[in-house]
Design a protein around this nucleic acid. Structure first.
Lengths: 130, 130
DNA sequence: TATACTGTATATAAAGATATACACACCATC
DNA sequence: GATGGTGTGTATATCTTTATATACAGTATA
């Protein structure tokens, strides 16, 4: 299972945290169901061009949060988690990132309609890419 | 001049970088014009409850990018910068953050209309707060 | 010229990222 | 069924980046 994870290396957000967030998204979004085997830390780290320890840290944190289960020697697997946790994860993550975007635009003195226009432009662009 | 800067301490983005980005926004957005004196690193660091060295680092980076000028013993002042740099700063910063928001929502399996709805909700909320 | 502001430099601690060596699990094959 | 190889996760030591405290140096002015 090849994971669709995109790292932005020049973002200031820690790499392990980017991996965490995107894996949470895949699990809470329903793209990865319980029991599915995740790529090994080595495979994933090679794919993302990142150290093994970094992917391990992401997996460890996700395990602490109850999203995955790891078994030494065997591998790492998506955990069962109830719908309420999935929904809560989705909501807070997406809400926060949009709130941040709008605040940034306001800081740069964008007006209501400018923000709306820019948003719609980017939204349509993102659809054309699929 | 008291600056409207909001730090999120539990964000993974480095503090000095948050300060940089928000100051860039204030300058490129036109809220701070050339020649205006910024708060001293000590005053700002007290206001933000952050170390002097951290605010200094933000100021240093901003100086390297040409947004401000500092004179030892006197203080730090907004630099003159031409409109094209202001516009470029605004555009890339705001564009990037919205793109990131939309990508996050897509990762969590939000549909086009769900994204739009959420965006509008938050946009209106942000206006009510003013 | 004292003092109370400014920015600056050095040393240290905590967090993030890495390489390298270790330990457990599976499985082919002898 | 013992054993070697190759896959998995784990632990230790080290480097870089981020954040801090403390001491230093320039500027203005009462």
């Amino acid at each position: 299972m090849k994971l669709p994870i995109q790292l932005s290396k020049d973002s200031r957000e820690p790499i392990y945290h980017q991996i965490e967030q995107q894996l949470k998204a895949l699990i809470a979004g329903g793209h990865l169901s319980a029991g599915v085997a995740l790529p090994s830390i080595r495979v994933l780290s090679k794919e993302l061009e990142v150290s093994v320890i970094t992917t391990r840290r992401a997996y460890q944190n996700l395990e602490n949060d109850g999203f995955i289960k790891t078994i030494q020697g065997k591998g790492t697997f998506v955990a069962e988690l109830d719908q309420s946790l999935k929904n809560a994860t989705k909501q807070s993550a997406v809400y926060d990132v949009f709130q941040h975007a709008i605040e940034t635009a306001r800081n740069y003195d964008y007006t209501h309609s400018q923000i709306k226009e820019l948003f719609l432009t980017i939204l349509h662009e993102s659809e054309r890419r699929e």
